[in-house]
Design a protein around this nucleic acid. Sequence first.
DNA 1: GTCTATATCCAGATAGAC
DNA 2: GTCTATCTGGATATAGAC
Lengths: 205, 205
Amino acid sequence: MERGNTKQEILEAALEMFSVQGFEATSISQIASAVGIRKASLYSHFENKQAILDELVKEVLGQYETHSIFAKTDWGKDNDNLPLTPDDAVKMIGGQIRYLLHDPAISRARKMLVIEQFQNRSLAKLQTKQNYSDVLGYFTGLIKCLIQKGVLAEDDPEIMAAQFCLPISVWINLCDREPERETEVMELVDKHIRQFFRLYQQSGR
Amino acid sequence: MERGNTKQEILEAALEMFSVQGFEATSISQIASAVGIRKASLYSHFENKQAILDELVKEVLGQYETHSIFAKTDWGKDNDNLPLTPDDAVKMIGGQIRYLLHDPAISRARKMLVIEQFQNRSLAKLQTKQNYSDVLGYFTGLIKCLIQKGVLAEDDPEIMAAQFCLPISVWINLCDREPERETEVMELVDKHIRQFFRLYQQSGR
DNA sequence: GTCTATATCCAGATAGAC
DNA sequence: GTCTATCTGGATATAGAC
């Protein structure tokens, strides 16, 4: 470390605390002492407490747009790494879940949005976008491709996507709350994906 | 009103605020003024702020055990009002969702648990029990009955239950966050239930 | 049971030396 | 940029009159 990145350290410490206690319950002194400075020094980097949250939402959560696979919805041509078999799907989704669960910034941002969703209208919208609409849109596109390729039977793709990814959303939230249940959850995910494929293959016959 | 129920009014006001702002961000004065008394008077009813939360968890959330249909899991004999058709299921589940969404105590308790789930280990456990395990157990039992009756095809009942009720959980949470989307959500629920039945009927042929 | 008054503490935020 | 010192307000909680 050795300075220069103090502002970044503040953002990281703040996110860590906001994601457990929430914004209101986290004090400036707490954040400052986690970074190793006095609370007064923190005001050299941010105008006030709210500015920390604003910056977090803008930067840390904003990098979602550039990095998250769910933010892009162009399932047009690049059907290269499409999961055509249950095994592929389990591998792909399993890896994705593990990444979402263990990346500190991502998991903390997700938890913070859960905590603050009823408090703040704009955070509610962000929560819906990142952890519902975009995910649903992503899987709707993927499933449309799989239908077109004849891998899955024809049916309402949006409902199929919901049936596929919303249980997984709930299981991710369960792991956020009780991390020790991760292996149990991963087994459920495995069974769920295979059953989903089996089902929507059969019915298309 | 006219007194005598001040303690109850305090609990209700507190739950209303805890369910939006969270416990830490809600002050004693806020609760007191919502009830129409001074903050000092509140200490005649509760030893301290924590005692309000404890009582809420014990009483208001505890009445879940006696009133919620999800708390009972005996699908043994009383297969009277079993939803045998998609229409029945849509009607039954739709009514249940509307009840869960609009009953003030239930919806506030649910939101409070969402907000406090990462803060407090025992509230995390309660959240998992009430809004995950019990619901999953309830629908696993129901689905087992429907399989036995030949209404649905044979498959892993726990996974079927997850595919059935976890999307609905997510949609309820979406309505908690953005109540104006209720009708849109109810249409999704309708389509989801019919597609679920159609699917698991077909595959059993 | 409710009130006013008060004690104590800690929050967010600013001033100014180094 | 970080510090000490300080301001101001609001928090939880208690004491004691009515």
